[in-house]
């Protein structure tokens, strides 16, 4: 495992109405690592992702991303540093084609503003062509190439998830956060997602992944972090974590 840490979360907490959703959580993700976050419903997994990406403010603790303190930065600033998130609920942009949706992903690393757009400067045209081509590559990767010109909000839910993934990839992220990307996907879609994640990992991308399906996680993750009631109850290689009595208890407790 590479040494340098891409993301380091230390002592982060967040409560809602006096109840902690995330409590004193610390974890660190190495560059190029695929780390899974699992835990029962309501354990605080999505909240943790929102704290990392800045959509929620942490009450305590600090977050460092490739050496930058990011816990006080707005979400779009963190995105520009290279964090991309695919949300649990589909958030596809309406009134746009599938390709345009993916092109939005490149926003943080492109520059054309209102003036060069209004005047249609040559540089703007060149940028647009490049972004569109890159969006098409991302669509190809997630298997949506033939949907490129369709209105995005007409896609079935499974494809909307894939679309978000393409959008995240079009940002050329350094850290990809996936919140339950496989939920609602059928067998072959799930398989396609798994092999895409493997491909991205082989390309050296750091990935933080929330997932309920333990088999899916065991196959993809280098490491698993288990959250329960907002706290980390286990952190280690998949085989070790799966045998952990605390983890078993948390999951059995939920099942009963």
């Amino acid at each position: 495992m590479p040494e340098e840490s891409a993301l380091s979360v230390s002592g982060v907490s967040r409560s809602f109405g006096g109840v902690y959703a995330v409590r004193d959580v610390s974890l660190s993700v190495a560059d190029g690592e695929v780390c899974a976050v699992i835990g029962p419903n309501g354990a605080g997994k999505s909240t943790l992702f929102n704290l990392i990406t800045g959509h929620l403010a942490a009450e305590h603790g600090q977050i460092t991303f490739h050496g930058h303190r990011v816990d006080r930065l707005a979400p779009h600033r963190r995105a520009r540093l290279g964090m991309s998130i695919v949300f649990q609920a589909a958030r596809v942009f309406g009134g746009m084609t599938v390709r345009e949706n993916v092109m939005v992903g490149s926003h943080g690393r492109t520059r054309a503003g209102f003036v060069s757009a209004a005047l249609r400067l040559p540089r703007h045209r060149r940028d647009e062509r490049e972004i569109a081509a890159e969006a098409d590559v991302a669509l190809e990767r997630v298997g949506l190439a033939e949907w490129a010109d369709r209105p995005a909000d007409r896609l079935p839910i499974g494809q909307q998830r894939a679309l978000q993934l393409a959008r995240a990839l079009c940002a050329r992220p350094r850290l990809l956060l996936l919140d339950e990307p496989a939920s609602g996907l059928r067998g072959e879609e799930r398989e396609r997602l798994a092999s895409l994640v493997e491909e991205l990992r082989a390309g050296g991308l750091t990935i933080l992944l929330i997932e309920h399906d333990v088999a899916f996680v065991t196959r993809l993750a280098d490491r698993i972090v288990v959250l329960d009631l907002g706290q980390v109850i286990a952190d280690g290689p998949p085989a070790e974590v799966r045998a952990d009595p605390l983890v078993l208890a948390a999951y059995l407790g939920q099942a009963s």
Binding site: P75, R80, F93
Partner: peptide, 10 residues
Amino acid sequence: TSETAAASSG
């Protein structure tokens, strides 16, 4: 459509 999703695209 979504300010949250927009912000997370930078």
